[in-house]
């Protein structure tokens, strides 16, 4: 099968050359046309970057790098510091990963190593379903179901059990960093699970056989598989990070939207994406809008880098395996 696919690739390359040698103008035109559309994706990305930068140029010129360190966000006094949002984005994403990564890896291992045949597809379908639920509905659920539960049960319990930590101090609002982190965790679960599962399934079976034949138990075999897939699993987690950083609606609805830095996870916070969602339409003067677009530019650049790194890591595993299988 794989050797067949390889042959196909070679042949389509050959065929492309063959058609060029015939110089049939219609074929050349067709090829160029589709190439234009493919290139337009690349152009689009660059165009987006330039547009955002141009529309934030006054803010960029005025605040410089200090924008990132400024702690005060007060549009009334024309003070724009991004630090509370940067902090909120980093902490909420980290919290989300702390919750989601162990769960996702557990599910991915279950699906690729342990699940009985019939189960595998059903469970994978249900986990994918989680990915199909729109962000705004997670937000709705967060406001009316999750945050009351946090306020009435979970946060008081955390405060009484781990209250000595600065993370769990202060009044339990329900709405706040913890709610944001939990919602994000649920939202990035499916992508981390799906990519991890792909990566684990790409590990050649010969590795599992090698471990088993040496007297390894199932779990010990799984550890061999995990070691083999390490780069790809890291990629899956970083892909999840990219999603968590850019996620907007659900977080906006539950994180409390207060531009302050607080150690307690119970306190309201704010992320880059949610401040844009909340204040963009209310931004009353040019510099305010530009400051928000500059936040967008920062978010865009960070997610670009994060996604690029993740993609390369995932490819490094799945492609390498494909090559090995071809030999």
């Amino acid at each position: 099968m794989s050797s067949l696919a390889l042959r196909d690739n070679e042949q389509s390359g050959l065929m492309a050359r063959w058609s060029r040698s015939r110089h049939r103008w219609s074929d050349v035109l067709f090829r160029r046309l589709t190439a234009c559309f493919a290139l337009s994706i690349l152009i689009l990305l660059v165009w987006m970057l330039i547009t955002l930068a141009l529309n934030a140029r006054q803010a960029l010129a005025r605040f410089g790098w200090g924008f990132l360190w400024g702690r005060t966000w007060d549009p009334v006094r024309e003070q724009f510091g991004a630090l509370p949002f940067v902090y909120g984005t980093i902490v909420s994403s980290t919290l989300a990963l702390c919750i989601a990564v162990p769960l996702s890896l557990g599910v991915a291992i279950f699906l690729s190593e342990h699940a009985p045949r019939g189960w595998e597809n059903v469970v994978a379908f249900l986990v994918d379903t989680l990915a199909a639920i729109p962000s705004v509905i997670y937000g709705l659920w967060g406001i009316f179901i999750l945050s009351p539960a946090l306020r009435n049960y979970i946060e008081p319990w955390l405060a009484s059990t781990f209250g000595f930590l600065p993370l769990f101090q202060g009044p339990p609002y329900g709405i706040g960093m913890l709610a944001g982190g939990i919602i994000l965790a649920i939202m990035v679960l499916p992508i981390i699970t799906a990519v991890s599962r792909d990566v684990l399934q790409a590990v050649p079976n010969t590795q599992r056989e090698a471990a088993l034949s040496l007297g390894a138990t199932r779990w010990e075999t799984t550890r061999v598989v995990l070691a083999h897939a390490r780069a790809g699993l890291t990629g899956a987690v970083i892909l999840g990070l990219g999603r968590a950083i850019g996620e907007t609606m659900a977080v906006t609805m539950v994180i409390g939207n207060r531009p302050e830095i607080s150690y307690s996870l119970f306190d309201p916070s704010y992320t880059i994406a949610s401040v844009i969602a909340n204040e963009f339409n209310e931004a009353t003067y040019e510099l305010y809008v530009q400051a928000l677009i500059e936040l967008g530019l920062i978010l865009f650049l960070v997610t670009l880098i994060v996604n690029a790194v993740a993609r390369l890591l995932v490819w490094s595993v799945t492609r390498r395996t494909r090559e090995v299988q071809r030999v």
Binding site: P204, E209, A210, L212, A227
Partner: peptide, 28 residues
């Protein structure tokens, strides 16, 4: 598990682990 400790197996395609030479032999 104990059976496979007593009955070793070599496969059609060599399948070393992505570790050092020493760690491969030491694994079992």
């Amino acid at each position: 598990v104990r059976l496979r400790q007593r009955v070793g197996m070599i496969f059609q395609k060599s399948n070393p682990f992505p570790r050092s030479i020493f760690e491969n032999v030491a694994y079992g």
